[in-house]
Simulated scan of single mutants.
Amino acid sequence: MSTAASTPLFACSRCFSRHPFEELSPGEQLCKECRGLFPVVKCTYCRSEFQQTSKSNTSSICKKCEANVKLYGKPTACEYCNTIAAFIGNKCQRCANSERKYGAAVTCEQCKQRCAFDRHDDSKKNMLQVDGKLLCWLCTQSLKRALARTKQHLSVDKHKHRGHNSHKDKRKSDMMKSKNSGDSLNESQPSEKKSKLNPLQGELDPNSSDHVVAMTQLKETIASLQKKVQQKEMELLSKDKLITELKAQHHNNTTDLRNEMKNKERMNETKFTLMNTKIQNLLKEVATLSKSAKKNNKNTKSLLSNTENSGSGTDSPSTN
């Protein structure tokens, strides 16, 4: 039984063609042909990359965040990495899991935010330890993309350089054949014809100054292109850093505004409570004064009635 026949095959989740498991994309389980039909985008919330699976559905939210939105509503900014992915509480799931597993967050050496996690003894598996620097997840992904682009550019340049070398070897082979044929002609022809062929051999010499100059120019061009690529990568990293800083500043400004609004609401509630208390006290005083005034009026009327009655008794005539 052949090895190919014994290898288990798995179906593509889109076209249902069967392939070895390692040829399918992680997560979506798509084959190479289906992967090429749809772009890879970043999730608006968690910033992780995923591949769209339908041309009609161009959503930039991954399935996990989409499910969380339906369950918990729109997320808020994570207090560590500032991604808008905190569905429960004030931390995104990535930072919450890392904090629970590796302890408190530390400062990222790239974006200078307190959003990296030191894995300590797990350094062999620590994918966030890049070139001896402790980076957060976002900066690590950005650096990996930059390194991948650089590697791709270098691979293209190397391929071009190999093509140039093969072309150069072919030219050398042709020149050697031409030289050998020239030598054989020189042996059979008179000395006059031999003197006419010698200048041509000098022009085809691979060690001539023109050939060396051309090779030097090509090497300088390759070095210049590689330098430009590195500069572009540094500019991209700088822009990513600036974007992260702006996000952090926006998050801080939003937090300050929210705190200010909460303080004003608290002050207004305190004033409202004091005014209500004062009004209640004034109403009690009004009720007390009103009751006292009614009592005084009643006493006054009683006194006047008694006075009138005593006056009428004094003025009445004697019966004797």
Rank of each mutant, 00 (worst) to 15 (best):
N268R: 06
H251R: 09
E308H: 03
M267Y: 04
K196L: 15
Q280K: 14
A248Q: 12
L303H: 02
V229H: 02
N299C: 02
V212L: 13
I243N: 08
L236G: 03
K194A: 14
L289E: 04
S209L: 15
L274N: 13
S238D: 08
V212M: 08
H250Y: 01
T254P: 01
K298F: 08
S290K: 05
N281D: 10
L204R: 13
K196C: 04
E235W: 05
Q249H: 06
N198S: 09
E269H: 09
Q217F: 04
Q230M: 13
S181C: 05
E308F: 06
L303K: 08
L282G: 00
K193Q: 05
L237Y: 01
K262T: 06
N309H: 10
H250T: 09
H211C: 07
Q189Y: 02
I243V: 13
K301Q: 14
L204G: 05
K291S: 15
E203H: 12
K264R: 11
H251M: 10
H251K: 12
G182E: 01
M234R: 10
K241S: 04
S209M: 11
S292P: 00
T307C: 03
E235T: 15
S290L: 01
K228R: 11
A223N: 12
L236E: 13
L204E: 02
A214R: 15
S184P: 00
L304D: 06
L283I: 11
E187L: 07
T277I: 06
T270H: 08
E203S: 07
N207Q: 08
D205C: 08
G202K: 15
S238I: 02
E260H: 08
G202H: 08
E192R: 01
K193E: 07
E308R: 08
H250L: 10
L242W: 04
L242Y: 04
T307W: 03
L246N: 10
K278D: 13
L185A: 09
T254D: 14
D256Y: 05
E245H: 07
S305R: 13
S184V: 13
T255Q: 12
L225D: 13
L289Q: 01
N252G: 00
R266K: 15
K294C: 04
T254R: 11
L257T: 04
S178Q: 07
D205I: 06
L218Q: 12
E308A: 04
L204S: 08
T244D: 03
G313R: 13
K262P: 02
K294N: 11
S292G: 02
K294R: 11
S292N: 07
N252F: 02
N180K: 09
K193I: 15
R266V: 09
